[in-house]
Design a protein around this nucleic acid. Structure first.
Lengths: 199, 199
DNA sequence: CTGAAATTTCAGAAACTTCTGAAATGACGA
DNA sequence: TCGTCATTTCAGAAGTTTCTGAAATTTCAG
């Protein structure tokens, strides 16, 4: 591997993390390299920079394409494919969230739905289904929130994030004024630990 | 494996998904089994139910404990350890989010911080650092939102979720009245696709 | 068409992970 | 203390993934 030290540390770290993120070391390294590279790179250059075989690069780029994490670029009078990453980090986040949902959540959601449609044979089945229903309901809440939020323009998404839990102040107001959600049993307490006055 | 068909399908599915979630098949299966089981189970019963070795169960339970995903129970006059999962799915979600953050986000955040402190040697370094800074900033926004939201009681968290992107209506109001965030360049458009009148 | 350059595929080697049975350790009552 | 039962550890077998170099395929200018 022949890279400036700073880039190399970053690339090696992404390689190590790759496993935890559901891709292998090479895929992580290539992604990191493309992310910091000022220009798109071709397969040969990647293989060279990371000191790995050309065929490994080819397979790993395929995987990155399956994840929608790389873009193909072309340079006039050059037949080679050049690769790069989207440069907007927020776009990268969206792509990543979408892909992980597709791989980690959707299959489970569809299995849960299928199993909940089955007619229970006995009490054990009934208990199991009740548990599956709880899980199903939670995942539905999350994915419908996600489907809603992902439509936001980046600027609004950032505003929403920086608001954080302070949104619940609006929720309290909403509770009182419009009676959205169920009426509260206890009197509303002021929230713990939301001191800095963003609003 | 000797389980009722419905439970078996669920257990097998979690086993398959395990790999995608950063644990192995056995860990996923054990978790699923404990999740649907009406009573806590001991290691022997788990090994029996899943048709795997006793020692494999022991190692996998260790891993589940490292993830804080199982609880230890004791039954009077029985020396064995019995295991179960928390039964509140929202608590499970919190634990999972926390653990994944710890494993998948925090190490990267600390590498980014470290690399951003280094003095760049040349333009390539300066460019790389600028890219790392963008990534760092995004991750910081996300984790600080997360730190804020995880303090919410479950009831409020659910209310926040069901509000989804409608929160941005408040953001618009906030924009106008309190000038939180930067002033808008374009006139505000009504949002596409947020019809059903929750508020 | 032909041939040179780029890319992909694929069988098997290397590396790594998972799983097991046997042995070691620990916990408890007598 | 001992014996019994439960649990953990661990070396290596079994299984899986990753990576390579060689061969096959694709692409395109001439």
């Amino acid at each position: 591997m022949n890279l400036p030290p700073l880039v190399q540390s970053f690339v090696l770290h992404f390689g190590e993390m790759g496993g935890r993120w559901g891709v292998n070391r090479t895929v992580g390294q290539i992604y990191a390299l493309l992310y910091v590279s000022p220009e798109p790179l071709c397969a040969e250059e990647i293989a060279e920079a990371l000191g790995i075989s050309r065929s490994n690069v080819s397979m790993s780029l395929r995987e990155l394409q399956a994840w929608n994490l790389v873009l193909l670029r072309h340079i006039p009078d050059d037949r080679r494919d050049y690769y790069t990453t989207p440069d907007d980090v927020w776009l990268i986040l969206r792509v990543l969230a979408e892909e992980r949902k597709k791989r980690e959540i959707d299959p489970t959601l569809s299995v849960l739905r299928e199993l909940l449609l089955q007619t229970p044979r006995d009490d054990a089945d009934r208990h199991a289904q009740a548990r599956l229903a709880e899980m199903h309901e939670m995942i539905e809440s999350l994915t419908s929130w996600y489907d809603d939020v992902k439509k936001l323009e980046t600027e609004r998404l950032m505003a929403l994030l920086s608001l954080g839990a302070k949104v619940t102040r609006f929720l309290e107001v909403k509770d009182r004024i419009t009676r959205f959600g169920r009426p509260r049993k206890e009197p509303l307490k002021t929230l713990p630990e939301t001191e800095e006055g963003g609003g």
